[in-house]
Design a protein around this nucleic acid. Sequence first.
DNA 1: ACGCCTTTGAAGTGA
DNA 2: TCACTTCAAAGGCGT
Length: 420
Amino acid sequence: MRQYVRPVGELHDVPVRDFVVPAPPSNISTPKKRKCEARQYEDRLYIKKPPNAFMLYLKEQRPKVMAELNITGSAAINAVVGKRWRSLSKDQQAKYFDQAETESCRHATEHPDWSTKENYGKKRKRTRNRTSSTASASEPKQEAQQAKRLCVTPAQTQPSSSYSVVKEPLKQPQRQPTVTNLPHQQSACVQLQNTQTTADAPVCQVNPVLPASHMDFSASASLASSAPVQLQKQAPFVSDTNEALLSVVEQLDPLLTSEQFQQPSSPLIGPQLSQTSLASPVYCALSTLYASPDTFFKNQKEPIGFADIQHDMWPILPVTPQPDTLSCSNTPKYSPISPVSLENSSPSKLLDSFVAPTECQPMSPVFSETAKYMMSLLNDLEPGPFAQHLQPSSPQAGWSSPESDQSCRPPNHSFLQTLY
DNA sequence: ACGCCTTTGAAGTGA
DNA sequence: TCACTTCAAAGGCGT
């Protein structure tokens, strides 16, 4: 496999280069069923939708049902699985919603500019007719609509920048970096609470994690859900990864383990704070890294693309972004509303204080300090690579870590090694 | 060769 | 806002 080396930043004034493996996304289309789409987009990659919870369940259950019932027809299998799905409890289903959120987050990281809109109308005629043979009068209209969609001009279905990377020089997305212009899927992730929400300073939104509709259902499974204590108690399915990650965040933010969070129904401040903390850019970025480190680092595109993918990643990377790798467009930047004293602030307060400025600004030193502290925690969990690159960073006053939770295991992933 | 079937959920579309 | 449509997976079947 070919690899390319490109500079990604500097470390202690020493240029750092990174291998870029131009591996195609894992969710490209199969040529068989995408001929129509392929006609329009030639050999451009077709990025599929991330699977939803039921699709993940379906994938898992299909071989079981096939073995149990000795049937092979997918339609029959799907009907059986659908029935089983409906018989599952909310808690049982939550496992798959959790996985779906992870997949969605990973997908959004790999394809930051992609939305389901890209695939809309790309399949051939497909008239969903639940009433079987009854040909409705609206069918011609539907067909006409679909034909219209199928015949859209390339200009109407301008591929996003993530597509363009495949064959063309990287282009700047045409959208302006206003949050309101972000695709809905991207904006679904995180909204930092307690931030200014003026017209000039929209609510910060960072990498996608989950649709809001899940936040009331899959609280235990959502990274950005409410009640972090619930997340620990009622989510035996939470992976080792998330568990370890949670332990880091809990250490990062002592508030998460304070007594007020032991009661899910207690004060309003609980969900608010927990959502902010668990949905923080750092946590979100870390979860992305943990979820798919190889993909994340291998699928880096041009520097500007990398910055676009995850500006929030820079603070936790052991490199300093070069000025020309920072993009002023399409990526919310974070800076403190007002100078925050490290001595008197917990990380959660710091994260709360970030808003998206109206123009490109340099990395917030406060944010970087937060990230450094997180790195030190990560280093404790998995000693190694970062120790030689980061100055030891002891917790500031007010950042005192709680007693480490014995149930929180260190991450099994060796993603840190992939950095070097 | 490729659309249909069949399921649920997420998201897009149009009124 | 609401109803409707499309697409994710998958493999046998029909055209």
